[in-house]
Computed example of a mutant assay.
Amino acid sequence: MHWSTILLALAGSSHALIRFQCSQLVRQRLDPLVNPGMVPSPHVHQIVGGDSFNTTMDPKTKDIPGESSCTTCQFSEDFSNYWTAILYFKARNGTYKRVPQLSNVLFDGAAGGGMTVYYMQDPLYDIPQQSSVKAFQPGFRMFIGDLNARTKQEAARFRQLTYTCMDDQNSREQETVAFPTRPCPYGIMTSLRFPTCWDGVNLDSPDHMAHMSYPETGTFESAGPCPSTHPVRTSQVMFEVIYDTSSFVDPADWPEDGSQPFVWSFGDGTGYANHADYVFGWKDDSLQKILDTKCYVNCPGAKTQSIEEMNKCAESFQASGKMVEINEDIDGWLEKLPGGHVANYS
């Protein structure tokens, strides 16, 4: 089924399914969730969302909506920050080149490609959005993935971090948990799905994961109940990020043994260490109101902005001097990945 057909089929959902694009706010070696205050942090991320993003983002003192003046996301009351590692291509001669990003279908023009964000009450393709879920609260944050995972077994506890090798913009099938092993003419899409059961008490935890859980029956798609330790159902947050691999399909540039040439910015060449970060920042109760509304994307009362306005937020943030400058090349052909990393497979 083509993606445009799926979108039309979902338009009749009985509760809100939120799908929106965010332009890229900045690309830098910063990670205020895992490495707060560290400048630079160990590896490069792409960050989208509110322009109050900074190196520390202390949850005890930070009012994200109040401190942000704009957001690079389509919902103009969403000042959350969402971020992921970025992808590099390792050429046959051993040098690395950043893989550019593409905006998702129907969101052409988003600066830097950015990412598409979803909030879902129920499985996306199986049934209409029917469940009532609780929105995240101010100060909430979470992380998904394991930077040290290098095998399928090690990645298995994160049940829904996947890749799609795209032949065209509508490719959405045959997801894998490791990097695709064949050339992808259009791109590689990563889909990062967060757990959906909250303990109802803690806005964070030392590993940024323990306060969240998967349903008792496994994945979000199982539609199973939450465990007693994490009884509060939340919407599933999912990121889709598309990397433009169309310039990296020549076999002459790939390793001589034909193995796949892509590597995360922190050196993982297997793909099993895919991960993502989320810091909640919706204004007031705007997210809960949307989740309680019978709508799809165009939700009554929800404030949105154009892609041009999203991009202006990114431009003003980068010109403002708010973010510390890290003087390093992250885009040219590099002998090592920023931070001194090299591709590793174990």
Score class of each variant (00 low, 15 high):
163 Y>E: 00
224 G>E: 07
229 T>L: 08
341 H>Y: 11
15 H>G: 15
327 N>H: 13
33 L>D: 11
157 R>H: 12
317 F>C: 03
74 Q>L: 07
191 S>G: 03
291 L>P: 08
115 M>F: 09
141 R>N: 12
316 S>F: 06
3 W>K: 14
236 Q>C: 09
162 T>M: 01
156 A>Q: 03
203 L>Q: 10
52 S>V: 06
28 Q>S: 13
151 T>I: 00
95 T>K: 14
202 N>W: 04
190 T>V: 14
219 T>N: 13
73 C>F: 04
143 F>M: 10
166 M>W: 00
8 L>D: 15
234 T>A: 14
284 D>A: 11
120 M>P: 06
85 A>M: 10
334 L>C: 09
84 T>G: 08
143 F>Q: 14
319 A>P: 05
45 H>T: 04
116 T>S: 11
4 S>C: 09
92 R>L: 05
333 W>Q: 15
236 Q>E: 14
155 A>L: 06
285 D>R: 02
273 A>K: 02
161 L>G: 06
231 P>V: 04
174 Q>R: 13
23 S>Q: 09
297 V>C: 02
149 A>F: 03
282 W>N: 05
312 K>M: 02
183 P>F: 03
240 E>F: 11
8 L>A: 14
281 G>M: 09
315 E>S: 12
221 E>K: 01
239 F>L: 04
307 I>T: 05
333 W>E: 15
283 K>S: 04
115 M>W: 04
245 T>Y: 02
331 D>C: 05
316 S>D: 14
273 A>P: 05
40 P>M: 04
184 C>K: 01
9 A>C: 09
228 S>I: 11
244 D>N: 12
168 D>Y: 00
159 R>T: 07
92 R>F: 06
194 F>N: 10
66 G>Q: 09
161 L>S: 06
304 T>W: 00
232 V>L: 00
53 F>S: 08
316 S>Y: 05
179 F>N: 00
218 G>W: 00
301 G>A: 01
183 P>G: 02
162 T>V: 06
274 N>H: 03
114 G>P: 10
46 Q>I: 00
296 Y>V: 14
55 T>G: 15
187 G>T: 07
275 H>Y: 09
127 I>R: 07
63 D>W: 10
62 K>N: 12
271 G>R: 03
274 N>Q: 11
257 D>R: 02
81 N>K: 02
176 T>C: 05
113 G>S: 09
299 C>N: 01
209 M>A: 12
176 T>V: 00
191 S>M: 05
210 A>D: 15
129 Q>D: 03
290 I>S: 13
297 V>Y: 03
44 V>M: 01
25 L>Y: 07
49 G>W: 00
332 G>L: 00
253 D>W: 05
65 P>D: 01
36 P>T: 10
36 P>G: 08
262 F>V: 09
293 T>N: 12
260 Q>N: 09
225 P>E: 07
34 V>R: 15
333 W>A: 10
